[in-house]
Each structure stands twice: as C-alpha cells, then as structure tokens.
Design a protein around this nucleic acid. Structure first.
Lengths: 409, 409
DNA sequence: CCTATTAAGTCAATTGTCTTGACTTATTTT
DNA sequence: AAAATAAGTCAAGACAATTGACTTAATAGG
C-alpha cells in the first residue's frame, strides 16, 4: 500500500516449482538407491506411475538418467531400472586455503575427473585471483579433454575457504585469510568464469562431500566435524546443509572453552587445542610446507611426547564437542573428517572412545555415534565441487519457491 | 523391483501442495505485516495478482481473513487491506510439568482465550492421564463459551513437556517424568480428544510461542534459551522449529560442562548450575510449592548470598552457552525466556553483559545479540497451543509434500 | 477543471502439471 | 492353458497458476 514499505513474506510457488521438485526427488532417489524402476519411483515418491513416466522420459531426454536391462522379478511384467548418467552433469570445485588453492572437477555421481593445485602468492585476493582463475581455466580444459560434452553440462562452480565470512579482520593474519573472507569472491568468480558460483566455508564443503558420496550419504541429520588447519562443523539438518543467517553456522573452532585442567576462567578458542594449526605449533612445523601431511603422518606414527600432549588436549575438547553437538542437534550420527592424515584421525577417534554419555545413547540407533569420514587434503575441494551438483539437483525447499529479482526473503 | 526392498526417497508434490503452500504464505504474510492488500501480497509473494485474488477469496470464504476499509494511497485505485480473522482458528495447548498440568486456548493470532491448571497426582501417566483429559475437556468447554464457533475451528492440540523423549529412564526421578517421556502420549491424547496432536519439549514450545507472538516474530534464525525447572533451547532455523532426528534437539541442559573454577575434568550437566532446579536446591525450596515463583521473586529481590552464588555459576554457564550457540548457529538473535520471575531474568541478562566475543559481533546487526523473551510460567503452555496453529498455517517444506500412508521418509 | 497517469483489482481464455481409469504387455502360478 | 500379478502406456480430465486486456478509482499537472 505505501509505496516503498518493506513487506516481509515468503515466496509462493507454482507448477514450475512442483515440477522442479519432482525432478529433483527422482534424481535424489536414484542417487540414493542406485537404480530404480518407474514403478519403484512411483511408490517411493508417492507420485503416480504416469507422472513418474513423464518425468523419467524428460530426464532421459535431458541425458540425466538412462535405462538398464529389464529385470524379471517374479510374476508380472519385468521392470526397467533406471540410473543416473554420470556424464549428465559436471561441476568444478575450488578450494582456497592459506597458501594453496585446489580445483576439482566432478560429475553427476560425484566421481572426481580432474584435479589442479597451485601455490597462492602472498598478498591475498589482489594477487591471488589471477592464479585462481587460471587454475579453474586449466581444470575446465582438462575436464573437456576427458569429457567433451562437459562444457555444455557444467552446472556451476563451488568455492570453499576457511570462514568466518563478513567479520572484521583479525590482527594476526599471516595468510591474509580475512582479506579473502571480505573479498567479493562470488562476483569475481562469476564474472571471471561465467558460471553460477556458490561459496561455503571448508567444514560445510566437507559435509557436502560426505553427504553426496561419503558417510552421510542418505543421512538427513548428521554433523560433520571438520578438523583441518582450523576446526569447524558442517551441519546437515533435514537433509540440507544449514548455513545460518550469514553463512557462518558451524564455526565451532571459535567456541571459547576452558583448556583441560584450567583453573582460571580464561576461555580460549577450541581450535587453539583441536586443529592441525595447534599441532603444527607444538611440533614446530611450517604449515606452508607442502610435505606437511607426510611429516605429521611420520611423527604421529612413532611415539612422540608432543603428539601425545596434543592428542590429549584435542581429545579432551573433541569428546566434549561431540557430546555437546549430539545434545544440541540430536543427529543420527557424527562424522569426523578433515585434512589430517588417516592414521592421526584413527588415533584421535580411538582415544575419544568411550564417548561421553548423551541423548545419542539410544537402543534404536542404526548408525554409530561417531564415524570417520574423508581424511584427505582434497576433501574440501571435492565438497566444493559437490555443492553446485547439490544446488542444482537435490530436493530443497528453496528450489520450489519462486524467485524475485528484488529483495530476498 | 524386489518386493519388499526398502526404497529411500523424499516425497513428491502436486498442485495441491502448491496451493497449500501459497495459502500458508498468504497467512504468514498477513500475520507478519498486520494487514496487506491483494496487490501487496502479490508483490511480496511473487505470485500474480490474479492468483492472490483467488486465494484471498478462498481464505475469506473460509473465514480466515477479512477485508478492512479501503485506503487511498495516492494515485490509483484505493487498495483494500486484508487481515487475519482472530476467530478463524483455535487451538488448545497442554503443558505437562512435574507436579502440575496447564491448558491454554488460543486463536489464530495467538491471543489467549482460556486457561486451566490442575495438580498432577503422583504416579505418572497411570494416574495423570485422567486429570489431563478432564482439564482439556474443561478448557474446550470454556473456549466454546467464549467463542461458540470454536468447536468447528479447532485445528489441534499441542502438548509440551520436559524432554528428552525415548531415552532410558533415569534412576532418580521423583516426578516420574521418564514415565511420561516414554508413555505413548500422542496416541492417548488423540483418541481421548479426537484432535490432531503434536508434541514438543518445553524449550521447543517456548520457542514456538516466541516465534508466533514474541521476540522471534518474523525472525527466521533464532535460538531461544529456555530456563525453567531444567534448561533447554528451542531452535528456529530457516523459519521452522528444528526437532532433530528424534525430537530431542535443543536439550542443552544435558550438555556436560566444567563448573566454574573446576580443577578436575569432571563434567556435569549444564542444568545442574543453570536452572530453577539448581536454584531451588541452593535455596532449599520445594519445587512442588505452588508459590515457588513468588518465593523466588521475593528472595531474588533482596541481597542474598545464595542467590548471588547461583547467579554467578549460572551466568558463567550461560555466557558460554550463548557464545557457543551463536558460533554454532549464526542466528540473528538469541532469546532468553523461561518460567522464571522477570526480575530474576533481568538480573541474569544484566550479569551476562558484556557477552563473550563471537561471530555475532557484526556491524550489520539489526537485532540485539541477546533479548529477554517470555518469562512466565505459562509460556510453555502458550507455545504448546501455538504449535497446532503453526503446524496448520505456517509455510513449511513438509506441508508441500505428498504424504504416504506407509513408512515415513 | 479537465486530462493523463497511475495503481488496484477483475475477467476470460490459456498453459502446464499431475491424476484418473481403462488398457496393453509380459511374466509366474496353478 | 487360464488366472493372477505387476509394469507401464494412453487419453481425457482436473486443478491451479498465468496472461493480457479490461474496469475502476484515485491523484498530478497543465
């Protein structure tokens, strides 16, 4: 009524939203179950056989699904199973880390088709953007060589970097991460590549990877603790990654906690004790060393007093963190993943057993309380690449709603 | 394909889902903005004028909205604003507490129309169900007297009680809460009243109340810390209450934490220090005393060493809890509410200032980091009553999807 | 004061998507 | 060989949003 009054409302939907959702549901069902017949899909999605037939026909024409040999399953006409076509879609992932940047190309089913890596020059975005755009370009070329059809079927670019975003810069910032966090990365990458770009913090990216091809596959309520240079959590709630009001949800490394045996009330960030950064400090390692993970792996293998001390402190924090996250989220499972050597991850998880008691101690559990997920320096880049696939093909509330050119919700 | 193989998939949707969502969006927009014209609604929801007209016509015929006087707003035909009809729908809320049960009747806009209270006899559900059903019956009669049309427009019954649900019984359980938590309350209430029944823990109910008529009205990312006999948090994420995998999300009182100045690694539940239960223990008060809140209020008003000690410990925990919840959820605001005297709530919040630094320290904040919400023994009952209204009328993903008679997602 | 402009809202036809119920096809059971 | 069962198709129908022209009612401006 008043001309410029701000009206708050959620967006409505229409038939397009319906159709888009149903297509996504089909794709999700095929991803989750491997292969399904039209009749299976109709039963699983509560849609009619006819609707499923129409949508599958569409998806087949679009090259996203394909039929397999008919199978006899007892009485009745044999069914024709369908599955996703891996080459139906591709996406590029970009990880920006403190001293290195990585790219990954994946297909619709999450297989990694190409990788790229480059050192990031000092100086933050001012000097780094060029390196990054070149690396993306190279990965696109590599991908096109492997899969010529990919250029038409590239659904987007996913970027991942340490958070938090949009917070005033820290004072001691040897790698200019704050400069990156406040840099208009989305816009720069979008204009630089012509792709739709998404941005997540690295724990969220790790969770996206776990959800698409890892331990959280098909799990609608999971917490992924990401232990990398820093510490974060990727929150999968109701089957979707939760981002918070400003995209900073899950930055658990910044929770202020009391160190083990502290007598003062001096709370310090969790990641001062539970992160690769803290381990590097204890071991006097250079985090910029490209051989860092090999070094850590080697040191962790043998008995080492400093590693023991670090483990002690980290396990103290992480046991509490798992218990707190279980209590807060009531998830089906907690997944520990990160850019740390698998051997160290195993040591950590073993030392965390027995977990602290929590409401997760249920008799009807089907998943373990704590699992190990990806422990791989490339996990974040894979998750970054998975994000555009998820954004484009996974069922989600926002995909049903109409979009408005002007103000958001 | 195989006869009884479990197929995991999300449910599809159809035009009915579309229509249901759009109706909900209209109602939500009217609730949020007070009154809007059809043209306003069209702009706000991204639907066409015609669609809005059709839906508003429907809603008007259903008695959920009504038109007001046309208003001139400059050039062009005057607009006709619409608003919600308070008598368009009613709901009953039921709170089951340790020694008392309360009922509330609310209307579509959340106004309280009737209240009821009764002592719960010892013995848990075996003896209590009868009392509860009688109290609900009485409240329904009271409501019908005030609003005769309510009987046809009663959309459901919301129940709220302390969680967690479905966990093995505790050993020391003076009020048989565990018996209630494992009792098939939903089914009993549904058959006993003939209404659609929902169940939440009391922190979730408090958050539901804050969202409908309190400090979280129109806020899509809010954490409500509920400090009552126990301690919990109601999580409003993406505009919906988050329940977790088993309905136990937010039971933060069960987080194990180190007491202030602890030198041992002995973690104990947060609510041992930050809850009315812990205050009662310190003050040697009987939690079953109906005058409890008045007593606490009186004691808290004067200087009292025991209250100071409690405040000290509770503030220590709650400051950390707020910082942790902000860091985990990145919400727009945190709301402290509960069944504690307002004076005590003010004391608590004042003592929590300054809050610990967190990612919530943003320049672009529009809401305070910490607010006081409902501090009222009836808050949980109000939230319980708000739940059926929210379930029936608020936009939510699940309302769009088709339902299946057999297994859930 | 008259006309142009602007905005709210309606009308009637159209479109897109899912649904319905009957039908065809292919296999196993009896 | 017939009956039963299940997958999948066909064609018409139902439903809800969209489209574009139209009506109504106000203000702005010459």
């Amino acid at each position: 009524m008043n001309d410029m009054r701000l009206i708050r409302a959620k967006s409505g939907t229409n038939q397009e939203g319906t159709s888009a959702h149903n297509r996504r549901v089909m794709i999700d069902a095929l991803r989750l179950n491997g292969q399904l017949s039209r009749a299976d899909l109709a039963r699983a999605t509560a849609l009619t056989k006819q609707t499923v037939s129409n949508i599958i026909e569409d998806l087949e024409r679009d090259g996203l699904v394909e039929s397999l040999e008919a199978v006899r399953n007892g009485r009745g006409q044999p069914s024709t199973p369908y599955r996703l076509v891996p080459e139906g879609a591709f996406a590029i992932g970009l990880q920006i880390d403190r001293h290195v940047t990585r790219t990954i190309a994946v297909d619709l089913v999450g297989r990694v088709l190409a990788r790229g890596e480059a050192n990031l020059p000092a100086g933050g975005p001012a000097t780094g953007v060029r390196t990054i755009l070149e690396l993306i370009e190279k990965t696109r070329r590599d991908l096109t060589e492997i899969a010529p059809q990919s250029e038409d079927r590239l659904v987007g670019l996913g970027a991942a970097m340490p958070g938090p975003f949009g917070i005033e810069a820290d004072d001691d910032d040897p790698w200019m991460m704050a400069a990156w966090q406040n840099f208009p990365l989305l816009e720069t990458l979008a204009t630089g590549t012509g792709l739709d770009v998404g941005l997540q913090n690295d724990a969220a990216a790790a969770a996206t990877a776990e959800r698409m091809v890892g331990a959280a596959h098909g799990v609608d309520h999971a917490i992924c603790i990401y232990l990398g240079y820093g510490l974060g959590a990727g929150l999968i709630l109701n089957g979707e990654l939760y981002r918070g009001a400003n995209g900073n949800a899950g930055e658990i490394g910044m929770i202020l906690s009391l160190p083990r045996g502290a007598s003062l009330d001096e709370r310090t960030p969790l990641e001062h004790r539970a992160s690769i950064a803290s381990l590097c400090r204890l071991l006097d390692l250079d985090p910029a060393d490209p051989e860092l993970y090999a070094h850590i792996d080697a040191i962790a293998a043998g008995p080492d007093e400093r590693v023991r001390r670090w483990l002690d402190a980290a396990v103290f924090e992480l046991r509490a963190a798992v218990q707190a996250l279980e209590t807060i989220f009531d998830p089906q499972t907690v997944i520990l993943c990160g850019g740390l050597p698998p051997g160290l991850a195993r040591l950590l998880v073993e030392a965390m057993i027995p977990l602290l008691p929590s409401i997760a101690d249920r008799r009807d559990r089907s998943l373990p309380r704590l699992q190990i997920g990806f422990t791989d320096p490339w996990a974040v880049a894979i998750g970054a690449a998975a994000e555009p696939i998820s954004r484009t093909f996974d069922p989600r509330f926002s995909a049903i709603l109409k979009t408005r050119e002007h103000a958001a919700v």
